[in-house]
């Protein structure tokens, strides 16, 4: 039992012809551009001009490895306990730092927050020593503290930086 399907269906009857015409026009323009040898001068810089405001930055291999290690988190809280025993009081609790590391990496930049995410802790590595999942928590804290400083500076990907 077919009922009224609305304008989309009506239009789609003519869709094939419109699609073809669009494809041909675009294809021709594309061909001309290729023949002229035109290419966007710096596509990666363009990418960051497009998406820098959304918090995107060039990926950092060290950070990526830290995130991979941090994926093993069991949310057990032993790092927080050990940090407390060592007398630490970092701005971001070690457990929260590990859980949040990937999200903070982009949210902070996207929103341009000026509050520090994490203070560089004493780096006593008590948290890392106690972690059952073997996560280098002290390095995660340090990476987030660095991120906070980077967030303060706007990202402009210059060709020199990328090449």
């Amino acid at each position: 039992m077919r009922g009224y399907r609305g304008f989309l269906r009506e239009l789609s009857r003519t869709g094939g012809a419109r699609a073809l015409s669009l494809q041909l026009r675009t294809g021709a323009a594309h061909l001309l551009r290729s023949l002229r040898g035109a290419r966007a001068p710096d596509p990666v810089a363009l990418f960051f001009r497009n998406y820098g405001a959304d918090g995107f930055r060039l990926p950092d291999t060290e950070r990526a490895q830290l995130q991979l290690a941090a994926e093993a988190c069991l949310v057990c809280g032993l790092c927080s306990a050990e940090c407390a025993r060592a007398g630490g009081a970092p701005l971001l609790d070690p457990r929260d730092a590990v859980i949040a590391a990937a999200r903070l990496e982009i949210d902070w930049l996207r929103l341009g927050l000026s509050e520090p995410i994490a203070t560089p802790c004493a780096a006593c590595r008590a948290c890392t020593a106690v972690c059952p999942a073997g996560i280098p928590i002290d390095r995660v804290q340090e990476s987030l503290a660095r991120l906070g400083r980077e967030a303060a500076a706007p990202q402009v990907a210059t060709p020199a930086e990328i090449r």
Binding site: G77, S80, A81, C83, A84, R85, G87, A89, D93
Partner: peptide, 8 residues
């Protein structure tokens, strides 16, 4: 807010 610190 950080019970381990309070305990310490």
């Amino acid at each position: 807010a950080a019970p381990a610190r309070l305990a310490r």
